[in-house]
Amino acid sequence: MTDATPAEPTAGQIRDLSRGRDMIVCEDVSKWYGDFQALDKVSATIKEQEVVVVLGPSGSGKSTWIRCINRLEIHQEGRIVVDDVELTNDLRNIEKVRSEVGMVFQQFNLFPHLNILDNVSLAPIWVRKKPRAEAESQAMALLERVGIPEQAQKYPGQLSGGQQQRVAIARALAMEPRIMLFDEPTSALDPEMIKEVLDVIKTLALSGMTMMVVTHEMGFAKEVADRLIFMEGGQIVEENTTELFFSNPTEDRTKLFLSQIL
């Protein structure tokens, strides 16, 4: 966040994060919707400050996986450990994880009955029990960071899609999370607005936030990701550093996907 490590390497450069702390650990995570298996023994570890981009065709389980990590979806087999807290049916663990993990949705999901400032400061006031004045000044600082302080008194319905998504990022950051999850943050945006949102996410990545991003923006993935994970049919097909993933994919399925998308 604001006090994150200042002199991080620039994006795209290969960073050695392997000695960092494990922030997200998934072991053989499986999930079914009725007979349909959405996740099939997904295992992955995400280190502190690492930026991981998840790729894959529609219905490959990317969104389901990322939503399992703050338990918007419940996995049925395997383990998920987030910042040393295992996600079980224990309500206290779930709430702890959710307040440590920020999430940005494809459809923004801002609260339409609250103005922008209240959207951002709602959770700090009611979950972190911050004084209203402090929560609001923090919210203003965050809105400045995502570049829209002048919209603070407006309502979500009065903002453009790109502005709404930036507010959604500010809202997630207001809880001072250690991990950010992005579920296709630019898929519902006009091409012109995609850049303004990606720029915000990029600066966030540079500030050392641990991030998991589901996206179809290949340029963004190349530029920002430390590691890429390619999924299909609920399984992880390939997992590699960004450079190797694009220059030398090992699996045929990955090659096919890249040839179609690039």
């Binding site: 959710r98 999430m103 709602l122």
Partner: peptide, 19 residues
Amino acid sequence: GQTEAAKAVGLGRGQILRH
């Protein structure tokens, strides 16, 4: 999506209903 967004910022069940 509203409930999910509220859950994702850590609000509890009662708070989600109320706010």
